[in-house]
Design a binder for these strands. Structure first.
Lengths: 158, 158
DNA sequence: TACATCTAACAACTCAGTTGCATCTAGCGC
DNA sequence: GCGCTAGATGCAACTGAGTTGTTAGATGTA
């Protein structure tokens, strides 16, 4: 990256680079292999406070860790499989991914809440869903998981 | 439809046919045109107690009212636009549609709950979401709508 | 270091949903 | 009842997210 095509310097140190070590440690804790794409994708998710699509991740890594889009899909799927991340179905038919809260690692996200901002479009993960919502299901319905989704304005756009 | 190609009689009167009149009346209440596809699609949705995808609708109508799939998409979108139906984003990246409760026609479905059955895969609409769930959002988040989604076993599969 | 196994990259594919455009028709005026 | 016109339908082609198959390459272990 030279200066001939750009007039002002791009941000040369993306936030996710500082999470590389943390990501490596988390991947080592799984029984699976430590690879560059896994580290980069996980570090990227760790650096965000909101859910990211496969495209967001690939875009964030394109300068320092260019990764094939199929690999991004597979790594994200693997992160969900090993319990490091979870996926969120958006309104635009796009999966978004977010790191699980490590403090809730035993039964991650069986009770879940998300907030999607109508202004910036980002989805945030809200933990601490109470075990008993004051909602009465019709008789005959036996729920096993609950997903609570809010829409409105996030703290950045308020 | 004669008996030469079939050995046993198919169900010749799909449930939606009995809703044709009701559907026509609802469409007349809008300012828009009364067309065969609109009537058929709306009658089909009216005959179901669960949410249907565009494919489900097209499939249900294929014998008596074969409709182009693009038209199904457009009619479903129109039904949402005029407030007769609403759409639900599923976990399989497929939109599903369901009639709005006419008794809640003023502010339809700003507070909404759905139940997706892990066994039969169908999505049901649960009305009567309380105005105040006992859930505290982090400060800075200003919600305008809530969508509560349960997963488990429905009353048919329990 | 050699090897077996798992992973990444590439290409091609599937499928839900969209767009463009020509044709048709519901509803209105006459 | 007839003709006109805005708006709806049907067809074909497209888009874009996500998946699958296969081969080459990287990883961890003996």
């Amino acid at each position: 990256m030279t200066s001939n095509a750009k007039t002002k310097a791009p941000p040369e140190t993306p936030a996710y680079l500082s999470r590389i070590g943390e990501a490596e440690a988390a991947i080592r804790r799984t029984a699976d292999r430590l690879t560059q794409p896994r580290v980069a994708v996980l570090a990227c998710l760790m650096s965000l406070d909101h859910a990211a699509s496969h495209f967001d991740v690939a875009q964030a890594l394109v300068n320092h860790h260019p990764i094939d889009r199929v690999t991004v899909y597979r790594v994200l799927e693997w992160l969900v499989e090993v319990g490091i991340a979870h996926r969120i179905a958006g309104d635009d038919r796009v999966w978004r991914f977010m790191i699980n809260d490590p403090t809730a690692s035993i039964a991650p996200h069986h009770q879940h809440a998300h907030f999607t901002c109508n202004s910036c479009g980002q989805t945030f993960c809200l933990d601490d869903v109470p075990n008993k919502l004051n909602f009465r299901l019709p008789s005959g319905f036996k729920p096993s998981t609950v997903d609570l989704k809010f829409r409105g304005r996030c703290l950045h756009c308020a």
